[in-house]
Simulated assay, not measured.
Amino acid sequence: MRPSRSPAVLFGVPLVLCGLAVMVMVWREAGAAGFWGGFGLALLPVPFLIGAFHWVDALAPRPWRTLAFAFGWGACAATLFALLANGLLVELLTDETASLRTSQADRLELTVIAPVVEETAKAAAVLLLFLHRPRAFHGVLSGIVAGGLAGVGFAFTENVVYLANAVARDQLEGVGGVDSATTVTFFVRIVVAPFAHPMFTVLTGVGFGLAVTWARHRPAWRRALPAAGLAAAMVLHSAWNASASMSLVGFGLVYVLLMLPVFCLMCWLAAWARDEQLRAVRRTLPKYAAAGWFAEAEPSALGSLRSRSLSRQLARQRHGSAGLRAVVAYQGAATALAVLRDQAERGTVGSDFATMERALLLRLGRHRPLAAEPVRTAAATAGGRAR
């Protein structure tokens, strides 16, 4: 097998095995009908959630293997670890503390054990990308995407577990309609809070992203920021789980006063980080244009959402799907180059800057024959206005 594929095999095969183990556990507990019913219902929000993080990542998209790893780790490895560790820790703690009643053990699992175990398991995906894929992990946006997709994967498998059990219980008891366990579980987990797990892990990702952006040469902060992000994820997860045992009013207050504000904050942060990438394009690419790598009008077009969209339309009209792919790749490489250069000027990039810069310039050269002309035309049509 070619060496370039060895990392995919190294991580892919264990993740598939973990996923199969989880599937067997759910199948044995809920039966075939419960498993497939839960799987189908849990799958419904996944394209929407992945699409949201794809939008966040669209200006300078990471390699698909990196994104697939984050999702697969959350869906397979993190979930299997959580299923095994949560029950084991509850059993150990309740055996050691004879005064704990069953309800207290449940609360202990929901508010302490599950948040710590699950957020640690999901954070491992972000940590691995942070350590072993530095070229794909270069800022806050990278942390948001990596953490978010790990959370989407975890939420998907956890939803399969809960919905499969609900379907099996309703079938056993002959219950249906709006009062069924399936309907209630679907409403709470899929309709009300589809972004819950992704949002928790995004907090961890933001910590890692800040460590890359602001603390590359500050070892204490480089360790403290990811730890602070993970702690914030655990606290928010604990508060959300605790709200499940509250009254409807208490649940609503936690949802409105805590979950929604944090969600809006994360949305604002993602939008700000995207805008910061566009500002980096407009700020740094003129230097490459002066050296002959871009035409004079290209930096302003590549730094404008309106012009980028128009470039893609023109490329599709003139060169079909091949032109569209070329412009998308050209825009992504140009944005990555701008971000890399901006980091170099801030002193937050590693010693492999020259290698990474050369690779991005070569990628731009490969796609220039089909991409450069639509980009220049878009710049002239839109007047170079940034948005």
Rank of each mutant, 00 (worst) to 15 (best):
L92N: 00
C76S: 15
G74V: 12
F35L: 14
G37S: 05
V56N: 04
V46P: 09
P63D: 01
G51P: 10
F39P: 13
R62N: 08
F71N: 02
W73I: 15
W55H: 13
T66M: 12
E91T: 14
A42S: 11
A52H: 04
G87N: 03
L59H: 07
A58Y: 07
A75H: 07
W73L: 15
V90R: 07
L43W: 12
R65Q: 12
P61W: 00
W36K: 05
A60W: 08
W36G: 06
I50W: 08
T94Y: 00
A75M: 07
F81P: 02
F53L: 02
F53M: 01
V46D: 13
G87T: 01
T94Q: 02
R65N: 13
A85Q: 04
G74K: 14
R62P: 07
A70H: 14
L49Q: 13
L67C: 12
L80Y: 11
F71S: 03
A33T: 03
G37Q: 01
P45L: 11
A68I: 13
L89V: 14
V90L: 14
L84E: 05
A58Q: 15
G34C: 08
G72V: 00
D57M: 05
L92R: 12
L49A: 08
A75R: 00
W36V: 07
L88I: 09
F69P: 12
A52F: 05
T79L: 04
A77W: 03
L88M: 07
T66E: 11
A82T: 13
F48E: 08
A33S: 08
F81K: 04
F39L: 15
A85D: 04
A68G: 05
L59R: 05
L88K: 02
L84M: 10
L84Y: 04
